[in-house]
Design a protein around this nucleic acid. Structure first.
Lengths: 66, 66
DNA sequence: TAATAATGTCAAAAACTTTTTACATTTCAA
DNA sequence: TTGAAATGTAAAAAGTTTTTGACATTATTA
């Protein structure tokens, strides 16, 4: 599962820490998800998409095979 | 987080068990998510949406407040 | 009605996500 | 080039999702 967090986040000039606060999760969580270390819960995915101004389906790129 | 799993699933004439098999999770997991017992992981949300023929953003209704 | 399929639910364990604390490395502006 | 901010990473603990097995209830259909 790929994602477009970094590109959207940086184009909004937000740090991982700022996004973390807006999502009410830790900075490490944002870092891990951005770097594809594990899948977030759906709830967090929605919060992230909301903050980054896109739909969940636009933020995460699902790969049917994995 | 509300969802439209049941209505889509039944309109496809699929049982919870059949959907579970297609998603490669247990029947109890499908039942719990359908009945809003807890949020799925994003990966499962994508598998479900895919099987039910909709986008994640169409399958789950995010409520900014919760 | 009786049998069968489908759904709801529970508890314990397994698996996974997230937090916390801490430190290393990279980036960027002064 | 130095200092500060941002990012990467790790390990243990906490929290949440998912599995498994089991049984009860509700729906469906013969």
């Amino acid at each position: 599962m790929d994602n477009r967090i970094r590109i959207l986040r940086t184009s909004l000039k937000l740090s991982q820490e700022e996004v973390a606060k807006l999502c009410d999760v830790s900075r490490q969580t944002i870092n891990a998800i951005e770097n594809n270390k594990y899948d977030p819960t759906l709830h967090l995915a929605f919060r992230l998409a909301d903050i980054l101004g896109v739909k969940v389906d636009e933020l995460f790129i699902y790969n049917k095979s994995t």
